[in-house]
Nucleic acid binder design. Structure first.
Lengths: 146, 146
DNA sequence: TCCATTTGCGACTAAATTAGTCTCATATCT
DNA sequence: AGATATGAGACTAATTTAGTCGCAAATGGA
């Protein structure tokens, strides 16, 4: 319906993990996968994609693994998600080439494009450094929204 | 990945259609489906769900069909989408019962819950009346964002 | 009253997407 | 040389989404 894929989810987990282990050692896919109880193979795949998109950099060989390629503050949730799942488009209509399935051209395309832009902006304003910091404030936020 | 289902899409189209034919006659599922080149059966299903959620009201029988149950300004995109696809949750983790697949409890849950809230607010701030009005401003918006 | 039209609902199938696995190649450190 | 990693692609399995069908019930009109 409107959900992040598990791969994107794993990607965020991995990138956050790397952010928290910055300046230590390169983390292997196996290491990260085991820490969070995720399939090693899948996590490897996810990290490979992140490496291809230059969000993390890889080191082959023994004691190799992955490192963040940029500062955590320079990586947004959108970067990670779109690296893994491709561009974020809430409908296939929002692209410019009008290949709507609805013949007369769906009248909701333009409004949805705007919604899409808003979501893009939300996602690109969340950085990995933010995601790594905000451990403490839980209780507060919880109170406000309940 | 992160996309509206076609059903939700069709739902928005249908509701917008009803908004634009307000005070005229009840529109049947067939009528709406044919106008936009969508499967009649599917559109019928979608409208049934919208009726069950009291977003539209139905009239049985010949010359029956559907009417909006509220003012277009009182119906948000979120209302329509969640009526059809269920609650909008960008990950299965964001609910309170911590059934993460990641053992140690995925560290990204709380940040993502916030992102989810933002998306919810974006969607609930877009009303059907807005979606029905903004036909004219296309060119301008296009220029600003390109 | 009878009939065409239309919604309501649930079961069902088909298609598409996503998740996850396996294999082999290549790089690199010790 | 050998253990440990990543890189890439093909492949299968599972899940979700899309779409269909049939039948019941309501309703307006001839």
């Amino acid at each position: 319906m409107f959900k992040l894929s598990k791969k994107a989810d794993y990607g965020l987990i991995a990138v956050k993990h790397l952010a928290m282990h910055r300046d230590q050692h390169a983390c292997s896919a196996t290491e990260i996968a085991e820490e969070y109880g995720i399939s090693t193979m899948l996590m490897a795949k996810v990290l490979q994609k992140l490496a291809r998109e230059r969000i993390v950099s890889a080191r082959h060989g023994a004691s190799g693994g992955y490192l963040l390629a940029k500062e955590p503050s320079q990586i947004s949730a959108l970067d990670v998600i779109s690296a893994i799942d491709g561009p974020v488009l809430i409908t296939s209509c929002v692209t410019s080439h009008g290949n709507c399935s609805a013949s007369d051209c769906c009248t909701v395309r333009e409004p949805l494009r705007r919604v899409n832009d808003s979501i893009l902006s939300v996602l690109s304003n969340v950085t990995i450094s933010q995601m790594s910091e905000e451990q403490h404030e839980h209780a507060l936020v919880e109170l406000q929204t309940t």
